[in-house]
């Protein structure tokens, strides 16, 4: 990661309390172009609140959110956001679910369909364009949800435990798949998880969060070369990083 990479997202000193309870405490995070950054922390530590702040759904009590140098504090509609639940609309076919972001932006249904069609192959959903969500497997639904997320904003994507609801086997398949397609998507990704192995396997950098109120305990660079495959999980380097993180938490 060289220093000439542009800042996509910069969060400066963000704090937020709910009903006098401090949830997010003075957090600063940066995400550079095409980088994969993970925010790793225990459940209920305020990770999702942080994402709501970045996406503009919640206004922080103090601090700023900059996206490509521009102040986006409390403004929605810039970054795309994917939740743990797939949140696909059961009454719409996959192709219409995926084109939803484009329709919100004011495109006609036919045009939106035309635009999303070519991405079905990348996301491994070819042949499922005109199925309803309930006809897809859990992993495919998550892929469709990710595709919809990508259709909204192709450069900055927030992923909030996207594989949290999947079984272990599907989960590890999805992780490899995600690394694989990221090469082609050229997106900057901010990822939330409480799964240490997942964090190390996917990320370029990891921010370790403390228990509530969420503070940054440490920033860790993962210097395992990409592309990675599932073999790295058993290497010494991987295990050393894992032990270090476990000590921190």
């Amino acid at each position: 990661m060289n220093s000439c990479q542009k800042n996509k997202v910069l969060i400066k000193g963000v704090s937020k309390s709910f009903e006098n309870l401090l949830i997010v405490d003075d957090i600063s995070i940066e995400l550079r172009e095409k980088e994969f950054v993970t925010i790793l922390g225990p459940s209920g530590s305020g990770k999702s609140t942080l994402f709501n702040i970045i996406s503009g759904l919640i206004k922080p009590d103090s601090g700023k959110v900059y996206i490509e140098g521009e102040d986006f504090t409390g403004k929605t509609g810039r970054v795309s956001y994917m939740y743990q639940k797939d949140l696909l609309l059961s009454w719409k076919k996959i192709i219409d679910n995926v084109s939803m972001p484009l329709i919100i932006k004011g495109e006609r249904k036919e045009d939106a369909r035309e635009k999303v069609k070519k991405y079905f192959e990348i996301f491994g959903l070819e042949g499922f364009e005109y199925k309803y969500p309930h006809q897809l497997s859990g992993g495919m639904k998550q892929r469709a949800a990710l595709m919809r997320t990508y259709m909204f904003s192709k450069d900055i994507i927030l992923l909030d435990e996207p594989f949290g609801g999947l079984d272990a086997i599907t989960k590890s398949k999805m992780q490899s798949w995600l690394l694989d397609i990221l090469d082609r998507l050229e997106a900057s990704i901010l990822f939330i998880t409480h799964d240490i192995e997942e964090a190390i396997f996917l990320s370029d950098r990891i921010y370790i969060l403390s228990d509530r109120p969420a503070r940054i305990k440490e920033e860790i660079k993962i210097d395992i070369s990409k592309p990675r495959n599932s073999d790295v999980i058993t290497t010494n380097k991987f295990n050393n990083i894992k032990r270090h993180i476990l000590d921190l938490l």
């Binding site: 795309s80 956001y81 639940k85 972001p101």
Partner: peptide, 21 residues
Amino acid sequence: DKDLLNLLKSMGASKFQIFKM
């Protein structure tokens, strides 16, 4: 689903769009 509503809001959907979609 509240998350679904938030998702649409985060995409900048209007109240009418949220109602319709």
